[in-house]
């Protein structure tokens, strides 16, 4: 009897051989099809399918070859233990001690060397400072470009009048001169035609029922672009925080930890909607020093 460890792992080597040959032929034909498709500017998807079939035919054939027509063993290999002799360990420790001794003996030099390395690391960090660009974290974290009497403008830069929205309407607005501003983006909504006092102290903030809230979610900063006019709720598309407009965009559902800041609105003498002053608090998600530098209104 022949050695079964080297025997074909099939009783029908001929059939397997033929099947493998078919696979390889599929691969070859696919190459032709691939070239033809490319030449005839066929659809890219067909190109991809032929491309895939080149590899699949080849792969299946080669695997079958390896699995059925090659020695399967079992073969065994001894494992070498992942340890060394006691002597080696001793010598390794000695070699290490040789250096450690001479370093230990010069205490002052050793300490200085450590200090130099520390300073060196700082020196490496300093160039990274340039990554910040022109700005270091500062006032822009706390303020937007809304100020006293800043007109609200649409995405096209047109100032917004009291006729801008029907009841139930919503529109994205920006401080004039800063269209597209990531921090100044504000959602203007109109739940009713009469002033809507969302919180005590905000009696004058909603002329003709217009309300404006920062569009930057207080959770992770996504634009809160979804206004449910019947429920008078704003919904953040990223993590589904829900804000109740009529109580000052307080968070009523989801992970957002704070209400959306409300922009105090007024109507100027030309009839345009303007901000009374900047947002009362930093807009957007929290950060470490959010409460530190903030001191009241920005005029």
């Amino acid at each position: 009897m022949s050695d079964p460890r080297y025997a074909d792992r099939t009783s029908r080597p001929k059939t397997v051989e033929r099947t493998i040959a078919v696979c390889f032929t599929v691969s070859l034909l696919s190459t032709v099809g691939f070239a033809a498709t490319y030449w005839q500017t066929g659809p890219d998807m067909l190109l991809g399918v032929f491309f895939a079939m080149i590899f699949l035919g080849m792969g299946v054939g080669v695997i079958a070859w390896g699995k059925y027509l090659m020695p399967q063993g079992p073969f065994v290999e001894e494992r070498h233990p992942l340890t060394t002799t006691e002597e080696d360990k001793q010598e390794f420790a000695e070699a290490f001690g040789r250096g450690a001794d001479s370093i230990k003996r010069r205490k002052l030099l050793g300490k200085l060397f450590v200090a130099v390395n520390g300073v060196f690391a700082i020196a490496l960090i300093i160039p990274l400072r340039s990554l910040l660009g022109a700005k270091t974290p500062g006032s822009e974290l706390y303020h937007t470009n809304f100020g006293k009497g800043t007109r609200l403008v649409t995405v096209n830069g047109e100032p917004v009048t009291l006729a801008a929205l029907d009841v139930g309407g919503a529109q994205t607005v920006f401080p004039e001169g800063y269209v597209g501003s990531a921090t100044g983006q504000t959602i203007l909504i109109r739940p009713q035609t009469t002033p809507l006092v969302t919180k005590p102290g905000r009696e004058t903030w909603s002329p003709a029922g217009y309300l404006a809230f920062s569009k930057v979610c207080t959770h992770a900063g996504c634009p809160v672009g979804l206004y449910l006019q019947e429920f008078k709720e704003l919904l953040c598309p990223c993590h589904q925080s829900v804000f109740d407009v009529s109580t000052g965009a307080t968070q009523v559902f989801g992970p957002a930890p704070r209400p959306l800041p409300q922009l105090p609105l007024a109507v100027n003498s030309q009839g345009y909607l303007v901000s009374q002053h900047d947002y009362d608090e930093p807009i957007g998600p929290g950060f470490w020093s959010r409460g530190a530098l903030w001191n009241g209104h920005n005029s």
């Binding site: 099939t10 397997v16 099947t19 696979c23 599929v26 035919g57 299946v60 079958a64 699995k67």
Partner: peptide, 18 residues
């Protein structure tokens, strides 16, 4: 060997179907 052919046929079938 039958066993060898079935998976091959499956894969080839998938390819053709694809």
């Amino acid at each position: 060997m039958k066993k060898a052919i079935i998976p091959i046929l499956i894969v080839v079938g998938v390819v053709l179907f694809g």
